[in-house]
Deep mutational scan, measured.
Amino acid sequence: KYKEAKESFQRFLENHEKMTSTTRYKKAEQMFGEMEVWNAISERDRLEIYEDVL
């Protein structure tokens, strides 16, 4: 289930129109921090996936 959450988060970042190569992690956290997809995984994993996607 956790792996699915990580994959969902990656797809979310890859497909969200507001995500560009210039979007900083903290800005994304402000935009999406309340969303379930954002909070479903640990911050360490979130940051790792974020850096992989951008």
Rank of each mutant, 00 (worst) to 15 (best):
S21F: 06
Y25T: 09
M35V: 05
L13H: 09
I49A: 06
E43K: 02
N39I: 00
E48P: 03
Q10F: 11
F9C: 02
I41R: 07
K26W: 09
Y50D: 03
E14D: 05
K26E: 15
G33Q: 06
E17A: 10
E7G: 05
H16A: 11
E7P: 00
E4L: 11
E48I: 12
R24I: 12
L47R: 14
E29T: 03
E48L: 11
A5M: 08
A28E: 05
E29R: 04
E51I: 02
F9T: 06
R11H: 10
T22L: 10
V53S: 06
K3I: 05
M35W: 01
N39R: 11
K26F: 08
L13Y: 02
L13M: 08
F32Q: 07
R46Q: 00
R46D: 03
S21D: 12
D52L: 10
A40R: 11
S21I: 02
E4A: 08
A28G: 03
E48V: 12
Y2M: 04
E7R: 10
E29K: 04
D45V: 00
L47T: 12
G33S: 11
Q30I: 07
E4D: 08
D45H: 03
S42N: 08
S8N: 10
L13G: 05
R44L: 08
E48N: 06
L13I: 08
R46C: 00
F12H: 09
E43F: 01
Y2C: 01
S21Y: 09
I41N: 04
Y25H: 00
H16K: 03
Y50F: 15
T22W: 10
M31R: 04
L47N: 09
F32D: 08
E7H: 07
K27G: 07
N39F: 00
M35P: 05
R46A: 05
A5R: 06
R11V: 11
K6S: 04
E17K: 11
K18Y: 09
R46E: 06
Q10A: 14
D52H: 15
Y25W: 01
W38F: 01
T23F: 12
T20A: 04
K1S: 04
M35C: 10
A5T: 07
K26S: 15
L47P: 08
S8L: 11
K26Y: 13
I49Q: 04
S42H: 08
N39V: 00
Y25R: 02
K18V: 09
E51G: 12
M19S: 01
S8R: 15
A40V: 04
Q30S: 10
M35E: 14
K27M: 12
I41P: 02
V53E: 07
E14H: 08
K26G: 12
A40Y: 01
K27P: 01
T23I: 08
